[in-house]
Computed example of a mutant assay.
Amino acid sequence: MPDIPPVDDATRIRIEAAAFRRLRQHLLVDRPDAQNIDLMNLAGFCRNCLSRWYGEAAAEQGVDLSKEDAREVFYGMPFAEWKALHQTEATPEQEADFTRSFAENVGKPD
């Protein structure tokens, strides 16, 4: 195991938050061409999962966000707008892969 310097909880949380913001930037800005269905098929999660997790984390902190509100916060725009700008129709192969992959992964599709 590497020799990782100890950090206090506040520093750890800032590091984790920065890593999350970088992941969000990568998925929304750097690679909007990566389709959610492909992310689900490969990794078992997608941008919609991240927005759902965001909403769940908000709820744990006493902040009530609807599914659509959490998506808008995560995507930086209404989800319908994101879909119109970046999401393509899934191919039959992608849908078949999704059906297979989903059966093997924990979680629920959005």
Rank of each mutant, 00 (worst) to 15 (best):
G44V: 03
L65W: 15
P78F: 09
D110E: 10
A59T: 08
L50W: 04
A103Q: 14
A84G: 06
R52N: 10
Q35P: 12
F20T: 12
D69M: 14
G107I: 00
E68N: 13
D97P: 02
Q94Y: 03
T99Q: 05
L39G: 00
E72G: 01
D69T: 13
L65I: 01
H86I: 14
E89P: 08
A57W: 04
R22Q: 12
L28N: 13
V7H: 08
M40K: 13
V7D: 04
T99N: 10
Y54L: 15
D33P: 03
K108W: 01
R100G: 06
R71S: 04
F45P: 01
D64Y: 03
C49S: 04
R21P: 02
E68C: 09
F74Q: 02
R22S: 10
Q87R: 09
E81F: 01
A10Q: 14
R21L: 12
L65S: 06
D64M: 11
H26C: 14
P92F: 07
T91P: 07
V106F: 08
F45Q: 01
E68H: 13
R47G: 00
G44W: 02
Q35W: 11
V73N: 04
A18N: 08
M1A: 11
M40D: 06
A59C: 09
H86T: 07
A96V: 07
G44Y: 00
P6T: 03
P5Y: 03
F79W: 12
G76V: 06
F45E: 01
P92N: 10
E60V: 10
W53V: 07
N41C: 13
E56S: 13
L85Q: 15
E89S: 12
V106L: 10
R22H: 05
N48W: 01
L28H: 15
A70V: 06
E104T: 03
L23D: 09
M77G: 09
A90Y: 02
K83R: 15
D8I: 07
E104L: 11
A58G: 02
G76L: 05
A70K: 07
E95F: 10
F45M: 00
L28G: 08
V29P: 01
A10G: 02
P32L: 07
A43K: 03
V73T: 02
F79D: 13
E81R: 05
D97C: 04
G55W: 04
N105M: 09
Q87D: 14
E68A: 14
P109N: 09
P5R: 07
A70T: 07
L65Q: 02
S51T: 02
M1G: 13
W82I: 03
A59L: 11
A80C: 08
N36K: 01
E104P: 00
F102D: 05
P32F: 03
R14Q: 14
P6C: 04
E72H: 07
G44K: 02
V7N: 05
L42Q: 14
C46H: 07
I4S: 08
A34G: 03
D9L: 12
D64Q: 11
N41E: 05
I4Y: 10
A17S: 10
D64L: 13
F102N: 08
D97W: 08
F102G: 10
A80I: 15
A84V: 05
R52S: 06
S51K: 12
L27D: 03
